[in-house]
Simulated scan of single mutants.
Amino acid sequence: MAMPLPRYVVFGEALTDMVRQADGSWLGLPGGSCWNVARAAARLGLATGFAGAVSQDLFGDELARASAEAGLDGRFLQRVARSPFLAFVASRHPPRYFFVGDDSADLHFDPARLPAGWREAAEVLHFGSISLVRQPLAARLCEEATQAARAGKRIAFDPNFRDLMRAPGYANVLEPMLRLASYIKISDEDLAGLFPALDTGTALAQVRAMAPDATVMLTRGAHGMTLLKGSSIVEQPALAVEVADTVGCGDAAMGGWMAGVLSGATGDLAAQARLAAAAAAIAATRPGAYPPRRDEVEKLLAA
């Protein structure tokens, strides 16, 4: 019997973070914001597909292995004979990094190769991060989002600001994606990067004006998060945990949020916010972009 197709499909980049160590060596870790979101959702029990392309070398092998381990639907991950996409993280504090991947595997993702019937089965499609800056992939993904929204699918969007988005052309992506989205996750740091002339409140108001019908999650790291839908506002404090690092916490929050939306908390903003906050908190207890398990999240919420 064929496995059911996923309800949540995450489009975007998977890459390898090459992290500089104290002794000057480099440690390779599988990552990428969109891939981290997908892993988090899958580990929380939501049937999820990561729709992206990775290389056919050892870097791609490790991403494929970790995808399977998280429970992602293997029919959505494409392997192509191109170089790996790498992010060199020279320093975490302050963050200093650069990307290597001029014609890398991620840019050769082909939506036509996705399994038959996937769009009918999917309920929410996620887009965001640097995959929406890197051409020709960005144009392909924007078209997918447009077609899916026309077909009545809900779009989730997390801009996840990076310096690449300072390019003038990104405004032509940001505004249409905000208008298409049913769910928008945005951090105070994203707002500062995307709207450098505006304070947080004014920038958030601008986002909401572009997406008046969307539910918006504003994340503020240790200061918690706010979920906004129409005139409803839910404040959710960060949950107290022993922090190892905060890498991937925003991605875990996004995966947790969508797991809540698609598992019975559709209209309950407070329940959605609690699940997102717990997922982010568990991610912070482990080094690197750790995707939290459902039992870990439930234990934290029960405590």
Rank of each mutant, 00 (worst) to 15 (best):
P6N: 01
V9R: 11
V9D: 02
E13S: 06
D17L: 06
R20K: 13
Q21D: 01
D23P: 07
G24S: 09
W26G: 13
W26E: 12
L27I: 03
S33Q: 08
N36L: 06
V37D: 08
R39D: 09
R39I: 10
R39P: 09
R43Y: 06
G45D: 04
T48K: 11
A51R: 04
A51D: 08
A51T: 01
L58H: 04
F59I: 06
L63W: 00
A66G: 11
A68W: 10
A70V: 06
R79W: 11
V80L: 05
P84L: 08
P84R: 00
F85A: 14
A87F: 11
A87M: 02
A90V: 00
A90R: 10
S91W: 04
P94L: 07
P94I: 08
P95E: 06
D102V: 07
A105C: 12
D106M: 08
D110A: 14
P111L: 15
R113V: 14
L114M: 03
G117R: 10
R119I: 11
R119A: 10
E123R: 11
E123D: 11
V124Y: 05
L125K: 14
H126E: 05
I130L: 00
E143H: 10
A145R: 06
A145D: 11
Q147C: 06
Q147D: 03
A148N: 13
A149D: 05
A149R: 15
K153E: 09
A156Q: 13
P159G: 06
A167N: 10
P168Q: 13
L174G: 02
P176Q: 07
P176Y: 14
L180F: 14
A181M: 12
S182F: 09
Y183T: 10
Y183R: 14
K185V: 09
D188I: 11
D190C: 14
L194K: 12
A197C: 12
D199C: 14
L204T: 03
D213Y: 07
D213R: 14
A214F: 09
L218E: 07
R220D: 02
A222K: 02
G224Y: 08
L228G: 07
K229C: 10
S231K: 13
S231L: 06
S231A: 10
S232I: 07
V234Q: 15
Q236N: 03
P237T: 13
A238T: 05
A238M: 10
L239W: 12
L239S: 03
A240I: 03
A240R: 12
A240L: 02
G248L: 03
G248K: 05
G248V: 01
G248R: 11
G250V: 02
G250N: 05
M258K: 09
A259C: 13
S263V: 00
S263I: 08
S263K: 10
T266F: 15
G267E: 05
A271D: 00
L275E: 00
L275F: 05
A279F: 01
I282W: 12
A283S: 15
A284Y: 04
T285K: 09
R286D: 08
R286K: 13
A289F: 04
P291W: 07
P291E: 07
R294G: 02
K299W: 14
A303E: 15
